[in-house]
Amino acid sequence: MTWLESLPLAVFVMIPLVIILIYALFAIWMERKVAGFIQDRLGPMRVGGWHGWAQSFADLLKLIQKEDIIPAEASKFLFRFAPFLMFAASYAAFAVIPFSSAYMGSNIDIGVFYLLAITSLLTISVIMAGWASNNKWSLLGAMRTAAQMVSYEVPTIMAVLSVIIVAGSLNLMTVTEMQSGNDTLGFLPNWLIFQNPFLLVAFVIFFISILAESHRVPFDLPESESELVAGFQTEYSGMRWAMFMLAEYADMLLLSLLGAVLFFGGWNSPFGGFMDGPIWGFFWFMFKGMILVFVMMWIRWTLPRYRVDQLMYLCWSILIPLSFINFVLIALWEMLF
């Protein structure tokens, strides 16, 4: 297809990893800056000069220097394995994300299905970490996570399925390509969010669900610092802990990018043909994803945490019925128009 495909396979599959790593360094810094600005502070200001841009590097350096502690009673293999499994699951899911019209890890027709399936591994790795730590808080955190992720997968999938009805394809590249152009109402881009009024509801459901899926506030119960001392991460330190954080941020990006593909036209430029092309496409795609990430951070520093029963109530009593009704309505709309 393009010159990128002519790269050796090892380099080709490493591209999302580079993106994730750079993004993680940036997002950690950004998270702290957003927190600072929202609280009328400045955030990191010292490291590196301009607005503490090197803060993440300093953090990374610190984490590398940390002692690698494995609890004596822990299940050693699982304890070591869990963080890497978690990151691997996040990373694997990036294979079907169309970063640009020129690059997509694996152009398969069951992209969405694969993505949702592979992210389920995150639940397993969290339980693995919690169980292997041999720590009550860790296990409690892991169990909460399992309950939360399994619950919220239902509305997520229903919202994604609603989009798939409209798009008619599980291949995310196809879904993106069909959103190009600026024809809606004469000026709006052909993004799916503007195609169908019920998709707006679907997006709200989707966004709430991905907040819960990626353990972001207000659904950060698995690692609630004040209750569970970081939940399943309690016993982890140093680079293993960093892997969890990396996986978490990667997951955040993954779901945000998925949202961008499904609702906001992926790598399509908002100005139609203007500023279009593979490079611009990559820019627009990451831009849209980062806006969603920013909204996640914004919400984090605004809302308090849900209680565990409220979390379940919101999922099973509100989001799931709503997503099913919405699913039917979208299907009807597609039949009628």
């Binding site: 600005f37 929202i38 609280q39 009328d40 502070r41 400045l42 200001m45 914004w298 809302l303």
Partner: peptide, 21 residues
């Protein structure tokens, strides 16, 4: 209430900081 809260935080986001370097 969620949007009210987010409105407040975004105002502070763009508002001046009180930190003294």
């Amino acid at each position: 209430s969620i949007f009210t809260g987010m409105g407040i935080t975004i105002r502070h986001f763009f508002g001046p900081s009180v930190t003294l370097q």
